Amino acid sequence: MTTTTGTSAGPTGIAIRRRRKPATPYVLLVPAVVALLIGLGYPVYWQVVTSLQEYGLMQQFGAPPTFVGLDNYARIFTDPEVWAVVAKSIAFCLVNAVLTVGIGLGLAVLMRAVHGWVRITMQITLLLAWATPLVAAVTVFRWLFDYRTGVVNWILVQVGADGMDGYSWLSHVWTFFMVASFVVIWMSVPFVAMSIYAGLTQVSEEVLEAARIDGAGPRQILWLIIMPLVRPVIAIVLLLQIIWDLRVFAQIRLLQDAGAPISETNLLGNYIYELGVGSQDFAGAAAVSLFVLVLTMVLAGPYVRYLMKEDAA
């Protein structure tokens, strides 16, 4: 039932009723908003308070924390090591997010082009890869790149790369992050590919047929018709991928356990872990955690504005 807030006279003198938006959708959102505020608000509040205090091992055993203001931020963010970790984390995040979405887009287009058992096989393969437990996936990649018995080194030696015999991928910074990228991309591509493929299935065949009748070729149909229609889906999965890749932790930690130089291969999540659990500097870890929250919002900001413009259009 539509309610009105009053009437006004139009140019012709006819009364026009103004419709009031129903309140039911907003009421239904209240439980979800309250749950988010409770589930996310308190941890953020605790991080803010802790970052303004001296909070270390003694405080874990009951000693009262001392208020120090912004001293933790000044101490942490004047350390060049922190900014080196930030730079590595941003580069790792953006490179992997772009590669993941690019590969996922290619697979989604391929799935739309093929038919029958080929498409089903691709979908099952992607789902199995996506469902693989994280620890199992990282363990497989550690075996593949093991410097003693790894298949990758063996293949490279067989094709003539003698310098790869016994090469330790995880002991060198650049090759460590290369392996880490393989793990992250391999585990993320299935979600991206299936999401974009779901968007591609919503493209009307009548629109594509009309384009073919007008003389458009396959490349023109892909870039001028299909891509604009699925651009919102690509924007969403790219946004999610940037957020997830910035917060990557377990993959890096498990690879570091294989003998990597920890201080040189830390990303932000691992650096926070080392500060808090390793050095018992919980106040410093809280300060870096809040910085990661702000950095996430900054990186996600352009995509959120884009999505809002798409929704308003």
Rank of each mutant, 00 (worst) to 15 (best):
Thr3Gln: 09
Ala258Trp: 02
Ser171Ala: 15
Asp165Met: 03
Leu229Ser: 09
Ala180Pro: 07
Ala211Asp: 01
Ala108Met: 04
Val207Met: 07
Gly276Cys: 03
Gly106Arg: 03
Ile185Gly: 05
Val192His: 01
Leu295Gly: 10
Val85Ile: 15
Gln158Asp: 12
Ser204Thr: 00
Gln256Asp: 15
Ser263Ile: 03
Thr139Gly: 13
Val101Lys: 04
Thr50Ala: 06
Glu81His: 14
Val86Asn: 05
Gln123Trp: 10
Arg142Thr: 08
Cys93Glu: 09
Val82His: 11
Leu70Ser: 12
Ala161Glu: 11
Met297Tyr: 04
Met111His: 08
Asp165Ile: 01
Tyr303Met: 07
Trp174Asn: 13
Arg112Ala: 09
Glu54His: 13
Thr5Phe: 08
Phe145Ala: 00
Val95Gln: 11
Val294Pro: 01
Ala108Trp: 05
Trp244Asn: 13
Leu224Val: 08
Asn72Ala: 14
Thr149Tyr: 14
Gly150Ala: 10
Arg112Pro: 03
Leu144Ala: 05
Ala235Trp: 03
Thr4His: 09
Thr121His: 14
Ser51Asn: 06
Trp223Ala: 06
Val114Tyr: 12
Leu37Asn: 02
Val288Gly: 04
Ser204Pro: 00
Asp214Gln: 01
Thr125Lys: 12
Gly163His: 09
Ala260Leu: 08
Ile14Glu: 14
Ser181Met: 13
Leu267Pro: 00
Arg212Asn: 08
Ala84Trp: 13
Gln47Glu: 13
Leu224Lys: 11
Val49Gln: 04
Val230His: 00
Val34Phe: 11
Trp143Gly: 06
Gly301Ala: 09
Met111Leu: 09
Gln202Asn: 08
Thr201Leu: 12
Ile103Ser: 07
Thr2Pro: 03
Arg212Met: 08
Val30Cys: 12
Ala260Asp: 06
Phe291Met: 12
Leu110Thr: 15
Thr2Ser: 06
Val44Tyr: 07
Arg212Pro: 03
Phe176Ile: 13
Ala97Met: 04
Leu144Arg: 01
Gly150Val: 05
Gly301Gln: 03
